[in-house]
Amino acid sequence: MSKNDRIIESLLFASPEPLTQKKLSNIFDSDVPDLKFSVERLNSFYNKNNQSIEIINVAGGYQLRTKQEFSIFIKKLFNNNFQNSISQAALESLSIIAYKQPVSKSLLESIRGVDCSGVIKTLLKKSLIQIKGRDDGPGRALLYSTSKEFLISFGIDKLSDLPKLKEINEIIGESNFDKQINAFK
């Protein structure tokens, strides 16, 4: 490991949010190392030495995380309070916002067919969504989009990494097709 790799390791350890190449350029005065390559070297070092941590690519940056196999111990460390439970309503709303952003409350409600005031409040409080602006239409409704925290909580690097809606259409389409065939039998 080079000295720069070790510096980056310390930054990853200390940083409360994913470390980005951009941030690195604020830290190194000259000869800014390439974060991606350092992360690769660090990860292969961790693997070779059977370490309990790994660096993952999330929300456009890199984050040091414990390996999943240790979660049962860490849960005990936090008295099982660590897990962020998330309701079905919140997940449904999040997926609609993630794919259709920016989204107004009324669009969200028309897709889900239920009132969404409460769930929007919860998602805002958990910082999973943010207010992006206002609709130009009548009433100038607030528009919501997903946040960086959403990417971090779901281990997603960027929004385009979400499964494509088209792919999902195909999945649904196929299962429907199967059903129709079954109906003919």
Partner: peptide
């Protein structure tokens, strides 16, 4: 995705 991400811990 959420459950998976929830298994690893970060600062």
């Amino acid at each position: 995705l959420h459950d998976e991400a929830d298994l690893s811990y970060s600062r």
